Computed example of a mutant assay.
Amino acid sequence: MQDLSFKPKAFLFDLNGTMINDMEYHTQAWLTIMNEQLGANISYDDVKKEMYGKNHEVLERVFGKDKFTAEEIKTLSFDKEKRYQEGYFPNLELIAGLDIFLEEAKQHHILMAIGSAAITFNINFVLDGLKIRDYFSAIVSADDVEISKPDAETFLKSAKALNINPADCLVFEDAPKGVECAENAGMKCIVLTTTHKIDEFNIYNNILGFIEDYNDPIIKTLFK
C-alpha cells in the first residue's frame, strides 16, 4: 500500500473514471446499442464488466469475433461515442481537486501524459472541452497502440514519449485492467475508487493507495 518515500518524475493518467467520472455514460451508451439495436439482452452490470480495451474488442467479447464486419464495427463505434458525448457533455467536469493537482504538478516541473484506451476523438472532447490540453506533454490513445490494456504498451509508450524511466512514473487509474497495465509496465499506481470496489484490486502489488478524488491527503505527499 502507500509508500510515502516514492517521488515520481512523471504522472500518467488514464482518462475515463480517472480524470473525469464518466464511465456510467459509456456503459449506458453501450447498453442501449447492445440491447435496443443488437438484441443482446445484456444487463448493465455485465456490460460494465466488458468496458475495457478498444470498441471492437468490447463488441467481440460480447458477440463473438466474427459477428460484425469492419464497416459495421466502425458504424457502431461512432454511434456509441456520439451517444456518450451527447449524454455526458452537460456534466463534463474534472474529478474534484484535479484542477489544483494539475497546476501543482506543473509548478513542481513534473511531466504529465495521458495513457488511455479512449479514442482520440473522446480525448479531444475532454481536453478541449475543459481547456486542460496544455498540462500534458504526451497523449497515447487507443489509436496509438497495437495491444490494449492490460498489455503494458499504453503506459510504456507514454513514458517513452516523456523520456522518463517507467519506474519513475506514477499511474493514476480506476480499473483493474489499467492497474494491471501499470504493473506490467513496472509502474506504481494510485487508484481512483470511482468505478470499482477496493476488493477488486486485491491481486495487484503496485498500488500505493486508493483515493475518492484528488483532494485526498495522499496527493499532497507526492510533492514533498
Results as ranks from 00 to 15, higher is better:
S141D: 08
N91P: 00
K49A: 13
K48E: 08
K74P: 06
I219L: 05
L12V: 10
I114A: 07
E93T: 03
T18C: 05
F172C: 03
W30D: 01
D216H: 15
K220E: 11
Q28R: 15
F121A: 14
T18S: 11
D216G: 06
S148C: 13
F125A: 03
F155I: 03
V145G: 08
Y214I: 02
M34D: 00
G97W: 03
K67Q: 15
M23W: 06
E200Q: 14
V47N: 06
I203V: 12
A105K: 02
A40C: 07
F6D: 01
A138I: 11
A113D: 06
T221I: 05
L127I: 02
N202M: 07
N55D: 15
S43P: 04
A29F: 10
H109T: 06
L59D: 06
E57I: 06
I20Q: 01
A185P: 02
I147Q: 14
K49W: 06
E36G: 00
N16F: 06
P217A: 04
S77Q: 12
S141G: 07
K49S: 10
F78N: 14
Q28A: 13
M1Y: 12
I219V: 12
K48A: 14
L38Q: 09
L4V: 12
I139T: 13
V62A: 09
Y214D: 00
C181M: 09
A118W: 10
L38W: 08
T32S: 10
C181D: 11
G64K: 09
D99G: 12
D45E: 15
K106V: 00
G186C: 05
M187L: 01
K106N: 09
K65T: 13
C189G: 04
M51Q: 13
Q107L: 12
V191N: 02
